[in-house]
């Protein structure tokens, strides 16, 4: 469904990602993980259209989307969330989401449909659908839900979820993970989940792609990743990897 081939992104002389290739199959939940600075956010932003990649190709459902602007990516059917929620404070919660339904589908639905889709998306993530609710005083968990609802309202086929668990407590993390699983189940949406906390993610993803220093070091089964020495090395250091290898 989504294919990233030989992606390179340079910022001046510094290459944030130097050769990233992976594929995402339809209906999959893919975990894109790696320690801080490994290039996962850069990869994410290249796909989402925030950055223009220096080299490489990104295609979605057979169409080349490399270097397209963010709004075109959204219209193509890729929704995204932001690592730090970015709600539009001047709009109510429902308006925030309705806006995404209207513009995300490139104004192809009528107004009534768009308000209904907004309410549906809010219901799905468990936020109030009353028109008066504002973003004022919403906590981190609720704002992340709003972020998800906004992405869902544009009726994406692929959801790019950026570090959805940052700033949540363990029970909220589990809820968030369950929610992504539920979104796939209910809506049949393919999900790429970018995260640096491995724990909760491993429970729901079908496959992980691990990045380090801008390159893919592992692509496969999540359980395999936990015993892969290269992955252990970047997460826990060389000593831990050696110990792991020495284990019978």
């Amino acid at each position: 469904m989504l294919a990233v081939e030989g992606l390179v992104k340079m910022f001046g002389g510094f290459s944030a990602i130097s050769n990233v290739s992976f594929r995402v199959g339809k209906g999959e939940i893919l975990g894109l993980i790696g320690p801080n600075g490994s290039g996962k956010s850069t990869t994410f932003n290249c796909i989402a259209g925030l950055y223009v990649p220096t080299r490489g190709r990104i295609s979605f459902e057979g169409h080349d989307i490399t270097g397209k602007p963010a709004n075109a990516i959204c219209h193509a059917g890729i929704g995204r969330t932001f690592q730090i929620p970015r709600p539009f404070h001047k709009l109510t919660v429902l308006e925030n989401v309705a806006l995404a339904a209207w513009f995300g589908q490139n104004r192809t639905v009528n107004r009534e449909q768009c308000w209904r889709q907004a309410a549906e998306a809010l219901e799905l993530v468990g936020l109030p659908t009353t028109p008066e609710t504002t973003t004022e005083g919403m906590g981190a968990a609720a704002l992340k839900k709003l972020e998800l609802a906004r992405a869902l309202a544009s009726q994406p086929k692929l959801l790019l979820a950026d570090e959805s668990l940052n700033g949540l407590d363990p029970s909220e993390m589990n809820q968030a993970a369950d929610m992504l699983e539920m979104i796939r189940r209910e809506r049949g949406i393919t999900i790429v989940w970018v995260e640096h906390i491995m724990g909760v993610l491993m429970r729901v993803v079908d496959r992980v792609v691990v990045l380090d220093h801008g390159e893919v070091i592992y692509d496969g089964d999540p359980h395999g990743a936990q015993s892969n020495s290269a992955v252990i090395e970047v997460y826990l250091g060389r000593e831990a990897a050696k110990r792991e290898e020495a284990r019978p």
Partner: peptide
């Protein structure tokens, strides 16, 4: 709505499909 949104945050506005 789009203008209120992009007045606050152009990147987030573009991410929901608004041609800023």
């Amino acid at each position: 709505f789009a203008l209120e949104a992009l007045g606050q945050d152009e990147e987030a506005a573009a991410a929901v499909g608004i041609n800023v």
